[in-house]
Amino acid sequence: MQIYLPIAELPVNVLLILFMGLAVGFVSGMFGIGGGFLMTPLLIFIGISPAVAVASVASHVAASSFSGALSYWRRRAVDPALAAMLLAGGLIGTTAGVWLFTLLRALGQLDLTIGLSYLILLTIVGGMMIVESVRAIIRAREGKPAEIRRPGSHIWIHKLPLKLRFKQSKIYVSVIPICIIGFIIGFIGAIMGIGGGFLLVPALIYLIRVPTGVVIGTSMVLTLVTMAYATVIHAATNHLVDAVLALILMIGGVIGAQFGARTGQRFSGEQLRLLLGVLVLMVGLRFAYDLVVQPADLYTIRATEEQP
């Protein structure tokens, strides 16, 4: 069943796109993440231009994180003050990200930047997740108690000024690192077409010491708002958001997420992190393969200026 995508300007199989939405939704529901880091590469691999993929996945991530954020909000597992501070940085970061995206596109280096960013970010983060979770699993096997991070163990981040008390999270911490984290997530999210949940959650846990109970809900609120905002400005500046593609993806995504969430409950936290780490690393290595192996055709063509 073929359908013509109006912005990507190519025919695709609806069932293939729907299946990709389901599969990525399953993974995102299982790990409590948006799934952009999987969806954008999959779209690129089936031939959709990286620019359209990044811009369209933003709205897909907005849909899946909204349904997630709503359920966390109902369970009061969101810290609104912390989310607002993250957003202050996140929206500026998204604006800067879309600006750089437009600039790189004009220079003809957008695809390379997207590929390199995926390679670097995903191999590092995936590698770290695997090492960390394998250690935790080994510790658990040897019967040692899990490493407890005492609330008193301060690092340099906790010595920064402009401290604020976040009641819901029960933390007292400077707003500077929070805004910076929000900025970085918004920035790379706009360029790479990812919500950044898989980066934000560990950053909030290890750097800011946000309790695990509120971290996913709060992270989803940031993802939701930055990705909704990214959709609007990608559409307004680059005209690259394919609404038809996004709709098929998000329908598959939200359904897949429900089944993923149920499957995810059967695994322990360490096992989930190990699985996610392996997945993240594999996507990173796939980009590495494309960049390192000599391409079958050294030449590519791209319309850089259309005549009216």
Binding site: A62, A235, V241
Partner: peptide, 21 residues
């Protein structure tokens, strides 16, 4: 109408997310 289109796409995303929840 890039801006209106972007807003409409975002609304569509939010509706889909809300509907699923």
């Amino acid at each position: 109408h890039g801006l209106a289109y972007g807003l409409a796409t975002t609304m569509m995303a939010l509706l889909t997310g809300w509907f699923a929840s």
